[in-house]
Design a protein around this nucleic acid. Structure first.
Lengths: 240, 240
DNA sequence: ATCCATTGGTGGTATGACCACTTGACCTCT
DNA sequence: AGAGGTCAAGTGGTCATACCACCAATGGAT
C-alpha cells in the first residue's frame, strides 16, 4: 500500500470534528445549548482559544449560532448547512450513507448533462485539447481508481468550459465528497470509467459546439452507473 | 422603514471579510503568500488570536492553505471554494455581478423543476397543506418583497418534499445568496411571484403525485422571469 | 559536491486577565 | 398587580504574552 502523509490534526481541528459529529448525529439536538467555551475547554482538556477557533468554524458552517452574552445554540443543519457538510453526511463513521449517496447520484445525473451542454455552447473547441488529453489518460491507465481520477479531471475541464460559477462551486463540493469515497466506489464505477467511446463522443460533441449532443452523450455516460447504483442502494435500503 | 437589529461585527469577522475580499478581488493572487499572522495582527491593529480565528475560517472556506512552519498561501477559490462563497461573489461591493447572477438563474431553472418532480414522487399530498398555505400567503400579501419571501417558503416545502439532502443543501446556499439581493430584485421578480395560478398548478401537481406535471409547472413558473433577467443581463454586459 | 546541523521565521497552543453583552432575579415605585 | 429599574452571574469577545512544533534556507563540515 502506498505511503500516506501522516495526518497531523491540530487541536482545533479535533474539537471542530467532535462538535460537528455530535451535531450531525443529533447528540446535540437543534435548539439545545452547547456547553460554554470554558466548560468545553475544561472537558476536552484544551485551551479556550482552541475551542473558540473550532466553535467559530462550526458557526460558519451554519451548525450552531453563537451570540455574545448568551449560550451557543445548535441549529438544524438540514436547514442551514451548505454542501460543505456533504462529505461528512456521505461517510458518517466511515460507512456510506445510502440515502445521501442516492441524493448525490441524482444531482450528478441532473447537473452533468446541463454542464456538458453549456460547455458545448460556450467553450467548444477551446477545451478540446484538455478533454482529449484526459480521455487518453483514461484509456492508457488501467487502474480503476486512477481512471476515476482521470474522469474527474475530464469533468473538471467541462465545468470550466461551462463558465458558470454556481456549477463550478457545486462541482467543487461534489468532488470533495466523492474523493474520500473514491476507492470504495472503484468497483461500482469501473463500468462507467471504461466507456472510452462515450467519453470521446461527449468530447467531440462539446468541441463541435453541439449542445444537445453533448447533453445526450453526458446522459449516456452517467445514466448506466447511476441507475445501477440506485438499484443497489434500493436493495440495500430494503434489506435494512 | 422597519427597525433592523444593529449589526454588531466582531473583530475576527471584520478580519475575515477583509481577507476574503482581498482574495476574491485578486489582490492576493493564487500561489502568493499571505503576510504572517503576527504581521497581519500588527497591520490590522488586532491581536493574533483574532487573526488566527479569521484565518482558520478563511482556510475552511478553501481560499487559503495554511501549513505549520511555512507561510499561508492563497488558493484558487474558483477551484476550491464551495457555494458558501456565492453571496460574496454575487454582490461584491454591493453591486450585483451579472455573470454570477446569470449563473444563479441557470442553476435555479435547472434544479427547480427537478426538485418539484421529486417532491411529487416522494411527498405528494404530505406537503399539500404547507404548499397551499404558502400560496395563500403569497396571494394575500401584496408587498413584492414579502411575496418573494413567501415564494421562498413555498420552495422550501418543495425541497423538503424532494427528500434529497444534496438539493436541500444547494437550496440553502442559493437562498443565502438570494436573500441579501431580495430587495434589489423585488421589481424584476414581481411578475414571477404574482403568478398565483401557476403556483397553485405546481402545488396541485405535486399533491397529485404527478412528477412530469410538477416539472412542467415549475418550468412555467421559473422560465419567464429567468429569461427576462437573462436578457437584461445580456444587455447589461453588452453595454459595458 | 554532499550532507547535515543551525537558525530564523511561521503556524500551533496555552494562560490569564479583562471587556461587552444577555439574562433573569429582585427590588421599587406607581 | 404591573411596569420599570438595578444588579449579579454567566456567556462570548478580545487581548498580551510566552512558549512549542515545524519547515526551509543557510552555511559550514565532510
Amino acid at each position: 500500500m502506498a505511503l500516506q502523509p501522516v495526518a497531523r490534526r491540530s487541536v482545533p481541528d479535533e474539537v471542530f470534528d467532535q462538535i460537528i459529529d455530535d451535531v450531525v448525529s443529533g447528540e446535540f439536538a437543534p435548539g439545545e445549548s452547547l456547553p460554554s467555551e470554558r466548560k468545553l475547554a475544561e472537558v476536552l482538556g484544551v485551551s479556550r482559544p482552541a475551542v473558540r477557533e473550532a466553535l467559530q468554524r462550526v458557526a460558519q458552517a451554519g451548525l450552531v449560532e453563537v451570540r455574545q452574552g448568551d449560550a451557543t445554540t445548535v441549529r438544524d443543519f438540514r436547514r442551514h448547512a451548505s454542501l460543505d457538510l456533504l462529505p461528512r453526511l456521505l461517510l458518517p463513521r466511515g460507512e456510506l450513507d445510502p440515502g445521501v449517496a442516492r441524493s448525490v447520484l441524482e444531482a450528478r445525473l441532473l447537473i452533468g448533462p446541463k454542464v456538458a451542454a453549456l460547455a458545448a455552447e460556450r467553450a467548444g473547441a477551446r477545451i478540446g485539447g484538455a478533454l482529449r488529453e484526459s480521455v487518453t489518460a483514461l484509456e492508457v491507465d488501467d487502474d480503476p481508481v486512477a481512471r476515476q481520477r482521470h474522469a474527474l479531471v475530464f469533468w473538471d475541464h467541462i465545468v470550466d468550459g461551462a463558465d458558470s460559477i454556481v456549477f463550478r462551486l457545486m462541482f467543487n463540493s461534489l468532488r470533495a465528497s466523492y474523493e474520500p469515497a473514491l476507492a470504495a466506489l472503484a468497483h461500482m464505477m469501473e463500468a462507467e470509467v471504461g466507456q472510452f467511446e462515450v467519453y470521446r463522443a461527449l468530447a467531440d460533441a462539446i468541441v463541435a459546439g453541439n449542445a444537445e449532443g453533448a447533453r445526450r452523450a453526458a446522459e449516456d455516460l452517467l445514466a448506466p452507473a447511476t441507475n445501477a447504483l440506485l438499484d443497489a442502494i434500493k436493495r440495500l435500503e430494503e434489506m435494512s
